[in-house]
């Protein structure tokens, strides 16, 4: 079996923050022991609310941030502590598409220039050849060659996101990390962009790491889904398993909370959890979810559960598999 495209083991990322000059330095626990693999050609969704660490994870996978601890492997080779020069030729293996297409394209340069950048950095094509290739790439994402002359501000959000995808595609990556790629787009445009990403995955065998807060979407497109909460993976399962029913109370709640277009009469859509996500500075002791969990018992606040195999998936909960979700109004997702 070939090595996975990307593999992280026990990844930790802590940021020191200081609110004021006289206050003690505090630590933001952005990632605390995250392990996962990205297999060739698969769609892995990483789901969670703000502050769960999903964007930090994306940046660590790309080595845009240096992790505090743990290992990142690209095609089996450890890249955790490579310097910028050693990293440069490896950059083409993993690319990223960001959420906000208004911020991810430099407004000063034409689409032609933006498309030429990756080709200039990673291929030996001449200027003229780069232009031809740029037009080909735009064609792949469904944009005509006339876009080469345009500037980002002349494009709609969906068109910009296509350009961003074409730009990532230019270096022929093995994986594209999509950080909320459609949440800034209109519903009618979202499907276009998702379909484009899915087509690229099929045609070029590119693995997609799909970072999102939108469970209703992720359920439909992912092969595997990882749910994150406060810097940890709380559940990792294949999409079919998640559709049948999540095993961790948090993932369960997250699925229940997503407003559905066709609510079941009599079933409240409200998440059976209250309150807000706690601050990643000083996360709760024991199980990080125990402050909002309806099933929390005394030992949940004391001992931190580890990610363990339950019914063909990984769940970080002491009582996974024993919980009676029927007690919840919104239990069915």
């Amino acid at each position: 079996m070939t090595a996975p495209v990307l593999e992280v083991v026990d990844l930790v990322k802590h940021y020191p923050v200081r609110r004021g000059p006289f206050e003690p330095r505090k630590i933001v626990h952005a990632l605390d022991g995250v392990s996962l693999t990205v297999r060739r050609g698969e769609t892995l969704a990483i789901v969670g609310e703000s502050g769960c660490g999903k964007s930090t994870l994306a940046r660590c996978l790309l080595r845009l941030e240096d992790p505090t601890g743990g290992t990142i492997r690209l095609h089996g080779a450890d890249i955790t502590s490579l310097d910028a020069d050693a990293m440069r030729p490896l950059r083409r293996h993993v690319q990223i598409v960001f959420q906000d297409p208004y911020a991810s394209l430099n407004p000063r340069w034409s689409i032609g220039t933006l498309m030429a950048d990756p080709l200039r950095l990673h291929t030996k094509l001449s200027r003229a050849e780069r232009r031809v290739r740029a037009a080909e790439l735009l064609a792949i994402v469904g944009l005509g060659g006339e876009f080469l002359e345009r500037y980002p501000h002349e494009l709609s959000g969906g068109q910009r996101q296509r350009v961003a995808i074409a730009r990532a595609l230019a270096v022929e990556p093995d994986a594209i990390i999509c950080d909320e790629p459609v949440s800034a787009l209109d519903v009618s445009i979202q499907a276009q962009v998702i379909n484009l990403l899915m087509r690229l995955r099929r045609e070029f065998g590119i693995a997609l790491v799909f970072i999102s807060h939108d469970l209703s979407l992720v359920k439909h497109i992912a092969d595997r889904i990882a749910v994150m909460y406060l810097g940890q993976i709380v559940e990792l399962a294949d999409a079919a398993g998640m559709r049948e029913g999540a095993k961790h109370p948090y993932s369960r709640a997250l699925f229940a909370a997503a407003p559905t277009v066709d609510p079941v009469p009599g079933v409240s859509c409200e998440a059976p959890i209250g309150g807000d996500v706690p601050s990643p500075i000083d996360p709760p002791s024991g199980c990080r979810f125990h402050t909002r969990c309806a099933f929390a018992k005394d030992d949940c606040a004391l001992t931190a559960p580890s990610l363990r195999a339950v019914e063909g998936r990984s769940v970080r909960c002491h009582y996974a598999g024993e919980l009676d979700f029927a007690r919840w109004a919104g239990g069915s997702s």
Binding site: L64, M87, R91, Q95, F98, N106, L121, H122, V171
Partner: peptide, 25 residues
């Protein structure tokens, strides 16, 4: 900003990012 992160993810050198990506903005 995301466009700068994108350039870094492409492996663009700091000098080029400073002079040709951020400077014009």
């Amino acid at each position: 900003r995301e466009y700068v992160l994108g350039c870094r993810a492409l492996g663009m050198r700091d000098r080029e990012i400073i002079l040709f990506q951020i400077m014009p903005n």
